[in-house]
Design a protein around this nucleic acid. Structure first.
Lengths: 224, 224
DNA sequence: CGCATGGTTCGATCCTTATCGAAGCATTCC
DNA sequence: GGAATGCTTCGATAAGGATCGAACCATGCG
């Protein structure tokens, strides 16, 4: 029984919750840094780093170093396909609802994903931004339209690309399984939400809780 | 990160070596009993039983009880497809050859698989039995031809179905990745090999070692 | 050059889980 | 009914690995 490919080794790499979350986050196709992945997985940076080196050694990830940033991505479409297959089985098997507590419900509605907003609210927002043609879908990329640039400028949100980081980026939402908005624009919008006190971050959690008035304001500006 | 299908749970089920071996053995499509799977995985019966109940609870296996026998099989083609995908990644990633020691080499040539012979010799034997039309391939089933019945009768091997257990059954070989012969006929052949002292079982191992003369005899009878 | 920041390595702790022997159930055979 | 066989459950042990704080390396910025 010692022959053949070591399937237990590969499967056990995916079999740890932290690593599974990381891989799941990378299924969006965009490479992420160690800190982003640590946040996504809900573990500390050293822990994430340890997991990432295991995934690298297992051949599941590729690494692109850019200056002091190190971007991790899935190694191949084959790896992505394997994860898809596992997700498929998990979905088929898993009407296993585990404790949909109040904390989780709040997370589902709105939460922080690194530095931008995620959850139902964030997905709905991106949908509306497309509907209103403030953002344009261009293959897998998201671009800002001229009307969009004007709109965000009016809101006091800077939309000029400064660093290497893209202004707009799609990020796959875990709970909704559709994209929400990342990139500097996504980050700026979250900043505004917090600065305007429309919502506050829950302590020791990624949940974002809107006040009653704040929710109204947010919907007026982004969901109308 | 608590949302969506629990992919870590599914992956970790496959991520244990013993369970991976069991699933691998079941990839042949034929359902196997707990004892057979214990042997394949190289663990004790209680351990195997524990693993099997976990795989059942995880929805990866189905169970068919027939009297005091309990046959475990893969739950669905989807599960099989997932395992295939994992194998694919493991193969792509894994020129990781681990210690092909003499013990493993012997196992590759000939070993016991529950109560019948497995390994290169066994696969070659089944090929020859088909070539000589002593056995007939019938979809996924294997049948004994009339000439085959006569042939084995001449060798002193009983081929009448007594119990529920089939006379012939294909069993996927780990090392060769092709089928060898199981069922009562497979068991009877192994019995003859041992009884004629053509080979002996290695102690505390599944390896079967042929003597020089025994190998000649075996080849004359089954590989000619 | 020094400081700040993103990442990794190290060491200690803790928890999960694989493992097997012994005992207990269930089913069939005599 | 008893004996035998296939399988599961229980209990105790042991090993592996996930985790985090603290210290360490590397790159970029002023």
């Amino acid at each position: 029984m010692r022959e053949g490919p070591d399937i237990a080794r590969i499967a056990s790499l995916v079999g740890d919750p932290a690593r599974a979350n990381m891989l799941n986050a990378l299924m969006g196709g965009t490479a992420l840094t160690a800190s982003e992945l640590a946040l996504e997985a809900g573990v500390s940076l050293p822990t994430a780093s340890s997991h990432l080196s295991k995934l690298m050694e297992g051949g599941l990830l590729t690494l692109a170093s850019q200056g002091r940033h190190r971007y991790y991505g899935l190694a191949s479409a084959q790896v992505a396909g394997m994860i898809e297959a596992i997700i498929g089985v998990a979905e088929a098997v898993g009407p296993k609802r585990v404790r949909p507590g109040p904390r989780d419900a709040a997370m589902r509605v709105a939460r922080v994903c690194y530095d931008h907003l995620a959850g139902e609210q964030a997905v709905a927002m991106l949908d509306r931004l497309f509907d209103r043609k403030l953002l344009l879908r261009d293959d897998n990329e998201i671009r800002l339209s001229s009307s969009g640039a004007a709109h965000f400028f009016a809101l006091g949100i800077e939309t000029h690309a400064k660093a290497r980081r893209p202004v707009c980026r799609a990020c796959l939402d875990w709970s909704v399984r559709r994209s929400h908005l990342a990139g500097t624009l996504g980050a700026a919008i979250l900043d505004k939400i917090i600065a305007e006190k429309w919502a506050r971050r829950e302590k020791d959690s990624r949940a974002v809780v809107f006040s009653h008035g704040g929710k109204r304001e947010f919907e007026k500006v982004f969901l109308s």
